[in-house]
Write a protein that binds this DNA or RNA. Structure first.
Lengths: 126, 126
DNA sequence: CCGTATCCGATCCGATACTG
DNA sequence: CAGTATCGGATCGGATACGG
């Protein structure tokens, strides 16, 4: 990657803030990933993510909606249905995120090994 | 991106954990970015990042070192010098991160606009 | 120069209870 | 069904002080 630290002097690097707002938290990437494959309603999404609370899901969806990467559509039936979907803007995130995801799958074992080695060294010194 | 939510049922998706451990916090990406351009000593890095505390820098460097993406080399001079550098494993992160960074720079304005629109709508309803 | 230790406020995130 | 409201534990991250 190019060195971006030049921009981060004095003023807090704004790129980082925008970037982490899309992917820096626990659930954002999974939600984007799931919505990329198909639009989904609130509870369908909740079941699919497995383990997220209503509160966290609502919060994350709101933030992503505010950022313009997902869309919220209320279907006036009884009871109400709400469908979430990826926007064109959100769709452009797909490839970069997928690349990072692929990196992780490819190198997870190496990272685990590095951790074991590090911990073993730390153990020895203690 | 492919839908990864299938893996995230019941067991907490491990890919996400490994991924966020490299890039999910405030300073990791900036540090990786800076070390990609050249190895650097502790205080040089600190000055370059601008705004990070010693504590946060140490913590982040330790975690990244433990994950095997950066290396720490102690140069026994007086006083001690410590040089941090990117590892081969860390180098493979360069392209995926750069892609995400480029996405942000390219679409930051759109995100800002989406936020304004969202906030304006919210304002109106209130 | 390169850390470690401690305190402390802010935020994250889960659990739980309640509503149109 | 799709939220909102509230509480509380855990973690993050800055400020500060001290040590090898």
């Amino acid at each position: 990657m190019q060195d971006v630290t030049a921009d981060s002097h004095s003023t807090v690097c704004p790129v980082r803030l925008f970037l982490l707002d899309q992917i820096g938290d626990k659930w954002s990437m999974l939600i984007l990933s799931s919505l990329c494959s198909e639009p989904q309603r609130f509870n369908a999404l909740k079941r699919r993510l497995g383990g997220i609370t209503q509160k966290s899901l609502t919060q994350t969806l709101r933030r992503l909606e505010r950022n313009g990467v997902i869309a919220r559509r209320v279907i006036p039936s009884t009871p109400v249905a709400v469908e979430y979907s990826i926007t064109p803007l959100g769709g452009t995130l797909r490839k970069p995120i997928q690349a990072l995801w692929a990196w992780t799958e490819a190198h997870m074992a190496e990272v685990e090994e590095a951790r074991r080695a590090f911990d073993a060294r730390a153990e020895q010194e203690a």
